[in-house]
Simulated scan of single mutants.
Amino acid sequence: MDKILLNRMMFYGYHGLFPEENKLGQRFTVDVELMVDLRQAGQTDDMNDSMDYGQVYQVIQRVVEGEAKNLIETVAEKIAQSLFNAFNKLEAVKVHIDKPGPPIPGYYESAGVEIYRERQDYV
Rank of each mutant, 00 (worst) to 15 (best):
3 K>S: 03
6 L>M: 14
9 M>S: 10
13 G>N: 10
20 E>V: 03
21 E>N: 07
24 L>D: 14
26 Q>L: 01
28 F>N: 07
28 F>P: 03
30 V>S: 02
34 L>W: 01
34 L>C: 09
34 L>A: 05
37 D>Y: 03
41 A>N: 11
41 A>K: 11
43 Q>Y: 07
45 D>F: 10
52 D>N: 15
53 Y>W: 06
53 Y>K: 06
56 V>M: 01
57 Y>T: 01
58 Q>N: 15
61 Q>I: 00
62 R>N: 08
62 R>P: 00
64 V>L: 03
66 G>V: 06
66 G>R: 02
67 E>V: 11
69 K>S: 13
70 N>D: 14
76 A>F: 03
76 A>D: 03
77 E>A: 04
78 K>W: 02
80 A>G: 04
81 Q>H: 05
81 Q>K: 10
81 Q>F: 02
82 S>F: 02
86 A>K: 10
90 L>E: 00
92 A>D: 01
93 V>Y: 02
93 V>K: 12
94 K>Y: 00
94 K>E: 05
96 H>Y: 08
99 K>E: 12
104 I>A: 09
106 G>V: 07
107 Y>F: 08
108 Y>E: 10
110 S>P: 00
112 G>H: 05
112 G>K: 05
113 V>G: 06
116 Y>H: 12
117 R>W: 08
119 R>N: 13
121 D>N: 12
